[in-house]
């Protein structure tokens, strides 16, 4: 067992983790994820794909809410802008998908500046409401701007082909999502350790104190919005490609709640937490399906027609349950388990 943290050169300081086992396991996990399409059937592969692009969006929200402490109830607005940014570029104008992904990040990022501006004046609940209003306004704006967006007719999105690689097959699209998820995770993990990340967290903990330490509140709050919107927009584009058809109807307010649930369940402000939260929330319907199939016929009868209601109630119960009994979320539980494992049979 290690007796302390000893850094002997710069390389060790820069490394994301100093634990050999964490690095090994991460590599193994990576290999397993890359090989997953060979083993999983189409349904399971679809689920893992959903987990991956949801993770990108959730990590985006985490930068804003988890790191910077700015509450957004309008993240679905960035998601829909990202999907449209990609769809308009690729689906309507037929430009290169790479440019599409770029636009999927840039368009929401610009909106992020606009939505972020009130955050300089507003705090907490008031900011949450402004962002929520933004989400509603953006939907109407997209419908009204039908000369750009096709309005209510929606846009068809073929799976992209980039650098000679076609992402048409489910496996290839899965790898594309995997790439973006890993990239998003790397960005999130590294931001934390940079000047930017430390400034974000200082703002979260006490913005007035942060300001007095010389952190430019305006710049960093806007930066948080921009980065968060950019990542969420990419997730929106992936979501759009996954659905292969983009309309405003596909992006309901419910997605915002789902994203909040992911952060709360996983543990706010922790990348690992977001990963765990995403897995749990995306798999929740499957889990409930399995659980209820174990019960009697009466429950199955309910499930036949009321499956989504039962699932939504579970969403609510899980959100409230974690807030009430374990605010640190799954990542807190994971840490507790780890500690118990290492120290057993001693308490600490």
């Amino acid at each position: 067992m290690r007796s302390g943290n000893f850094k002997q050169n710069v390389g060790e300081l820069i490394a994301l983790t100093d634990s050999k086992s964490v690095a090994t396991w991460s590599c193994l996990l990576m290999v397993a994820l890359i090989g997953a399409p060979m083993v999983l059937d189409a349904h399971l592969l679809g689920l893992v794909t959903v987990i991956l692009f949801t993770l990108v969006g959730a990590l985006g929200l985490n930068i804003l809410m988890g790191y910077t402490g700015l509450v957004s109830l309008g993240h679905v607005g960035f998601l829909v802008l990202g999907a449209y940014g990609y769809a308009v570029t690729v689906g309507i104008h037929g430009l290169h998908p790479l440019l599409g992904f770029l636009m999927a990040g840039i368009v929401p990022a610009i909106a992020g500046v606009i939505v972020g501006a009130p955050s300089l004046r507003l705090k907490g609940i008031y900011l949450a409401i402004t962002t929520m209003a933004f989400a509603f306004i953006i939907n109407t704006a997209i419908l009204e701007a039908d000369f750009i967006t096709n309005g209510s007719s929606g846009i068809f999105l073929p799976r992209p082909t980039m650098f000679g690689i076609s992402f048409k097959s489910d496996a290839a699209f899965y790898w594309l999502c995997l790439f973006f998820a890993v990239a998003a995770l790397a960005v999130t993990l590294n931001i934390r350790r940079s000047r930017i990340g430390r400034a974000f967290m200082a703002i979260r903990d006490n913005d007035i104190a942060a300001q007095s330490m010389g952190i430019n509140l305006i710049a960093y709050k806007l930066l948080a919005f921009v980065m968060s919107a950019f990542m969420t927009g990419i997730a929106g584009a992936l979501f759009g490609v996954y659905l292969s058809f983009v309309t405003v109807e596909g992006f309901t307010f419910h997605l915002t709640i789902e994203a909040l649930a992911i952060l709360v369940v996983g543990g706010l402000g922790s990348a690992l937490g977001v990963v765990l939260g995403t897995i749990l929330i995306v798999l929740l319907p499957e889990i409930t399906g399995v659980l209820l199939s174990l019960t009697g016929d009466a429950a199955q009868e309910v499930m036949a027609t009321k499956a989504f209601e039962v699932r939504n109630i579970l969403y609510g119960v899980i959100i409230i349950g974690f807030l009430r009994f374990d605010p640190t979320g799954l990542v807190g539980i994971w840490k507790d388990v780890q500690r118990t494992w290492v120290n057993w049979p001693l308490k600490y």
């Binding site: 059937d41 189409a42 349904h43 679809g46 689920l47 959903v50 979501f239 996954y242 659905l243 292969s244 058809f245 309309t247 109807e249 596909g250």
Partner: peptide
């Protein structure tokens, strides 16, 4: 929409 995709996938595979 996203559930429709999942549903058809499930029916097919």
């Amino acid at each position: 929409n996203s559930r429709t995709v999942e549903g058809v996938r499930k029916l097919l595979t």
